[in-house]
Simulated assay, not measured.
Amino acid sequence: MEDFLDACQAAVKGNEPKSLAAKMGVPHVSLLQRANPDNDAHRLTVEHLFGILLHTGDMRPLAVLAAEFGFDLVAKTEPKPEALTKSLINVAKEVADLTIAVHEALGDNHVSTFEKNLIRQEISHVRQSLDVMDASVKAA
């Protein structure tokens, strides 16, 4: 918890506290007091934390919080949009590959561990192609 509170304070102090406080709609002295882990009278709220993350882009508090619970914080990379027809063809191809993998796995009425992994891999490819299609629709 101490590392998390320190990361919150570092995010506030490292990102122009006066400007940050103005964006968040709070007095900068109040923000500094709330971000100070040694000040028992004031604490950051979830709304304050959200404002800090939103307006600074400093994800150290979130990364420390994730690490406290055994997770890694990894930024998501947005897929590059393509022409809608091309992305549609890729989705159809990936769905066809998934269909073939499932059909072949069911051929002997038993789905082995290897076949399960292959099917899951094909599902992942379908998801990725759908993400590209979504980005393509947004860009159109």
Rank of each mutant, 00 (worst) to 15 (best):
Met1Ala: 11
Asp3Val: 06
Asp3Cys: 05
Leu5Ala: 12
Ala10Asn: 15
Ala10Cys: 08
Ala11Glu: 04
Lys13Arg: 10
Asn15Ser: 14
Pro17Thr: 04
Lys18Ser: 15
Leu20His: 07
Ala21Tyr: 04
Ala22Asp: 14
Lys23Thr: 03
Met24Ala: 06
Gly25His: 12
Gly25Glu: 15
Pro27Asp: 15
Ser30Cys: 04
Leu32Arg: 13
Asn36Ser: 15
Asn39Leu: 11
Asp40Trp: 07
Ala41Leu: 09
His42Lys: 15
Val46Cys: 12
His48Met: 07
Leu49Trp: 06
Leu49Tyr: 04
Ile52Tyr: 04
Leu54His: 10
Gly57Cys: 10
Gly57Arg: 12
Gly57Gln: 12
Asp58Leu: 08
Leu62Glu: 12
Val64Trp: 02
Leu65Val: 01
Leu65Trp: 15
Phe69Tyr: 15
Leu73Lys: 10
Val74Thr: 15
Val74His: 12
Ala75Val: 08
Glu78Cys: 06
Glu78Ser: 14
Glu78Leu: 14
Lys80Leu: 13
Lys80Ser: 11
Pro81Ile: 09
Glu82Leu: 12
Leu84Tyr: 09
Leu84Trp: 04
Thr85Leu: 13
Leu88Phe: 09
Leu88Met: 10
Asn90His: 14
Val91Trp: 03
Val91Asp: 05
Val102Asp: 01
Leu106Glu: 07
Gly107Thr: 01
Gly107Leu: 01
Asn109Thr: 05
Thr113Phe: 04
Lys116Ala: 05
Asn117Ala: 04
Leu118Ile: 03
Ile119Asp: 01
Ile123Cys: 11
Ser124Tyr: 03
Val126Lys: 00
Val126Thr: 02
Val126Ser: 01
Arg127Val: 12
Arg127Trp: 06
Gln128Ile: 01
Asp131Arg: 04
Asp131Met: 00
Met133Trp: 08
Asp134Ala: 13
Ala139Val: 02
Ala140Tyr: 09
